[in-house]
Amino acid sequence: MSKYRKKSIGGILADFIIWIVIILFALACLLPLVNTVAVSFSNQAAATGNIVWFWPVGFNLASYSKILEDAQFWRSFFISVLRVVLGTALNLTLVILMAYPLSKAKNEFRQRDKYMMLLMIAMLFSGGTIPLYITVKNLHLLNSIWALILPHAVPVFDVILMMNFFKAVPKSLDEAATVDGATVWQVLLKIYLPVSLPAIATITLFCIVTHWNDYFSGLIYINTATKYPLQTYIQQLTVNFSEMYSTNPEMLEEMAKLSNRAMNSAKIVVSTVPLLLIYPFLQRYFVTGIVMGSVKE
């Protein structure tokens, strides 16, 4: 009997339908992005008239020039980079230190269930924006980068993801290291962390995306525009035609090339590029980290 069975007509038809559905979903995700890029490179008339589809009309770089020539853009960019670096480092440190003891059996950590209950409550319920703002204000963190980082210091979902991954590590490795005289810190650093790289890479990607894309924290915690992170800056940035009004022919020509729609599209493209550059380096760990960390023994 042949090792591979021939598919029936029904099976072939089912595969065809599945592929069609997958392709349609992929296009539904991809085409809006292509349209956004095309609009960002189009002139004012085409962008405002909503005649741009998947290719720029009246190609120009006026929107990108308007954004990139501003010193505040680069200032906000470096603030966001600093936030991502500090915030991700703090997130990983706290997530690992919290997930490791929670992954132990109840006879090793008797208060585990109580801490897990507190984590679940914190994940499902929030005190709200006003109490959080008052807390940040009372800690004298307003208008500082720590106001953007500390409220997101412990992502509970990531703690659960890492905890379940630690549970999947064979208990025999822990016991063998303990018999050889390894301390708790040595077991964590030399055994658990090296085998948990997929989960760590996945959590790192989550933390980077969270810190990079967050604009609301900058709106409520930062009072000085020069301290805005990038997402808050581009969210506030608009084309101010009254400031551009001039009899200077060059200024009038620049004004004719710009539109709010093209500017907004350029903002999206500029803010997305750094994540697109980082994702390929972490993508190979992503699926493994999600699957292993989501399975509870």
Rank of each mutant, 00 (worst) to 15 (best):
S2P: 13
R5L: 12
R5G: 12
G10T: 02
G11T: 05
D15H: 07
W19V: 07
V21S: 12
V21C: 12
I22S: 12
A28M: 08
C29S: 04
C29N: 13
L33I: 13
N35Y: 00
N35H: 15
V39N: 01
A46F: 00
N50Y: 08
I51F: 00
F54Q: 02
V57T: 11
F59G: 04
A62Y: 07
A62P: 04
S63P: 00
S63H: 15
I67K: 01
A71D: 09
F73N: 08
S76Y: 07
F78H: 03
F78M: 15
F78L: 13
I79F: 08
S80Q: 08
L86E: 07
T88G: 08
L97W: 02
M98Y: 02
A99T: 11
Y100F: 15
S103Y: 02
S103C: 07
S103Q: 05
A105K: 14
E108N: 03
F109R: 06
Q111C: 12
D113N: 15
M116V: 06
L119T: 05
M123D: 08
L124F: 15
S126N: 14
G127L: 12
G127K: 01
G127H: 10
G128R: 06
I134T: 14
N138T: 06
H140S: 08
L142F: 11
L142Y: 09
I145E: 10
I145C: 00
W146I: 00
W146F: 15
W146L: 11
H152A: 08
V154R: 01
F157T: 09
M162A: 08
F165L: 06
F165Q: 04
S172E: 15
D174A: 02
A177W: 09
V179Q: 03
G181P: 05
V184T: 13
Q186V: 09
L188W: 10
I191K: 05
Y192V: 12
P194D: 09
V195Y: 00
V195K: 14
A199V: 15
I200L: 12
A201L: 12
L205W: 09
C207W: 00
N213Y: 05
Y215L: 06
F216C: 05
S217T: 02
G218C: 04
L219P: 00
I220V: 15
P229E: 07
Y233S: 01
Q235E: 10
L237Y: 10
T238D: 10
N240T: 13
Y245E: 14
S246D: 07
S246R: 05
N248V: 05
P249K: 10
M251N: 14
L258C: 09
L258Y: 01
S259V: 07
R261F: 07
R261I: 12
K267Q: 07
V270L: 15
S271L: 09
S271G: 01
S271Y: 10
L276K: 07
I278S: 03
L282V: 14
V287D: 12
I290L: 11
V291M: 11
M292R: 14
G293N: 10
V295N: 02
V295H: 02
V295K: 13
K296G: 12
